[in-house]
């Protein structure tokens, strides 16, 4: 999806900056922004690039580094930690073969931390792109990763 097409769907009002960023980043396989894209958005909304950078740098959803097709976000807040019976963090690092902050060589997976996902009733929980998976066990975690890989091979 080209940026211009995303921009067309939003009014030229600066309050739409975050909505535009969210929408475009979601469309991009690498889930990140390049400088020329941020510049184009700034021009479209007639706001300084510094302001766009300020917003991108503030919200954890946004990235200026390329990320994997599937972004695994691990909640590390208290409710999840209290219900983590299988060492979620080490397990996911082992399954994906990467550490937090890294992306797999094939560009498929990125592992990140996230603040509380608001699914403490289903803790421990993780978020994979837009979807939240709760009440995790080791097997469930493996199944989630396997499903992503299957989708790619299909």
């Amino acid at each position: 999806m080209i940026l211009a097409e995303v921009l067309k769907r939003f009014p030229k009002k600066k309050e739409y900056l975050i909505e535009i960023l969210l929408e475009y980043q979601k469309q991009k396989e690498t889930h990140h922004f390049e400088e020329h894209e941020l510049k184009e958005i700034a021009n479209y909304l007639n706001i300084p690039e510094s302001r766009v950078c300020s917003v991108v740098g503030f919200y954890t959803f946004f990235s200026t580094e390329p990320r994997g097709k599937y972004i695994f976000q691990i909640c590390r807040d208290l409710p999840c930690q209290l219900n983590d019976n299988f060492d979620l963090l080490s397990s996911i690092q082992m399954i994906l073969g990467i550490k937090v902050g890294e992306t797999t060589q094939d560009g498929l997976f990125t592992l990140e931390y996230t603040s509380c996902l608001g699914h403490c009733d289903k803790s421990p929980a993780i978020r994979v792109n837009d979807k939240i998976h709760g009440s995790l066990s080791l097997n469930k975690l493996k199944a989630i990763v396997a499903e992503c890989k299957e989708k790619e091979n299909a």
Binding site: L38, P48, E49, S50, C53, S54, T64
Partner: peptide, 18 residues
């Protein structure tokens, strides 16, 4: 608007874009 606060919390810096 050359200068802005870029980043959040402890990582905030005053800086030009990018």
């Amino acid at each position: 608007s050359v200068l802005e606060i870029i980043g959040r919390g402890r990582e905030s810096v005053v800086s030009p874009a990018y």
